[in-house]
């Protein structure tokens, strides 16, 4: 039996605000540079708002695209530079009929089963402090795990991951790899790293270890109107440790193998997901009771 392994490339790229065509060109250049360097990841993972920037306010109206349009753009780009099937996970602002969403797409470019595998629409839209998402975008509904060439996968976007019930649902539905496109402005510089970098890494490390899943955090870098986006993308192992991570603020490409066969021994040692499944009926009752507090 073949080992279940694939290579992920986290593209921590800084978009120019609003310049979709320019940012697609930048992506193309980076893909060409990867090939020139002899690197050919199986899955490329880009951050939230990867081709537009994150803080758009009402500019979502000008910059949102349909999922089909984005797929065509990526497929055109892939056809120009890549010579084998390629999977892509990318955060984008989605237009659908008359609504806008902050979405993440998993697509296979080229190959027998090419196409959009899944689009997750962000459920938890931060609308506090520096964030104002729900003013401009609609909420998605729910979390799915979906089949890919490289294991069962799920996408949660940025604040979605801060509610760990979301990744719990993904893991219960069978996800082995959870992709998190994100954009997190740096704040509170009292420690060795900004407080949100520490928080993100601790949080995602916990998600990976609790459920025995790989987690790919692809986080936007660079500055947007004085707000420094953290970068610090990372790959988290099912045992909870960080396999590799990028620096804060600046562009980076992170390439790593993901050995899906390492999930099973991690879950054998800490069968928390299995325990959760066993205890789930009781938890559901408790959750329904907790709904009484939702007014």
């Amino acid at each position: 039996m073949q080992p279940r392994v694939f290579q992920v490339g986290i593209l921590q790229l800084k978009p120019s605000k609003g310049k979709r065509a320019q940012n697609l060109e930048h992506l193309k250049t980076v893909m060409q540079e990867l090939l020139s360097a002899g690197e050919k990841p199986d899955v490329l993972v880009l951050p939230e708002g990867a081709l537009t920037g994150y803080f758009l306010q009402g500019g979502v109206r000008e910059l949102a695209v349909t999922r089909d349009q984005l797929f065509e753009e990526l497929e055109d780009l892939w056809r120009e530079v890549w010579d084998a099937p390629l999977d892509v996970v990318i955060g984008f602002f989605e237009r659908s009929d008359n609504d806008y969403y902050n979405s993440g797409m998993y697509a296979q470019l080229g190959g027998e089963h090419a196409g959009i595998k899944h689009v997750h629409r962000k459920v938890f839209l931060p609308t506090y402090g520096v964030f104002d998402e729900e003013r401009y975008q609609s909420r998605g509904a729910g979390f799915e795990a979906f089949d890919t060439r490289f294991g069962k996968s799920a996408i949660v976007i940025c604040e979605d991951a801060w509610h760990t019930i979301t990744t719990t649902i993904c893991a219960l539905k069978g996800a082995e790899v959870i992709y998190i496109p994100s954009a997190s402005p740096v704040r509170n510089l009292e420690g060795e790293e900004p407080s949100n970098v520490r928080y993100w890494h601790n949080l995602v490390s916990g998600i990976a270890a609790e459920h025995g899943v790989f987690v790919v955090l692809s986080s936007l870098p660079g500055f947007e109107g004085g707000k420094g986006l953290m970068g610090a993308s990372a790959l988290f192992h099912p045992r909870g440790h960080i396999v590799a991570r990028a620096a804060i603020l600046e562009e980076a490409v992170l390439i790593s193998n993901i050995y899906l066969d390492e999930i099973q021994p991690a879950r054998y040692e800490n069968p928390l997901l299995s325990d959760l499944r066993a205890g789930l009926p009781g938890m559901i009752v408790s959750l329904e009771e907790a709904l009484k507090w939702v007014r």
Partner: peptide, 10 residues
Amino acid sequence: FYLRPVDFRL
């Protein structure tokens, strides 16, 4: 009503 960030350019 018309809200665009300071770095927004098309």
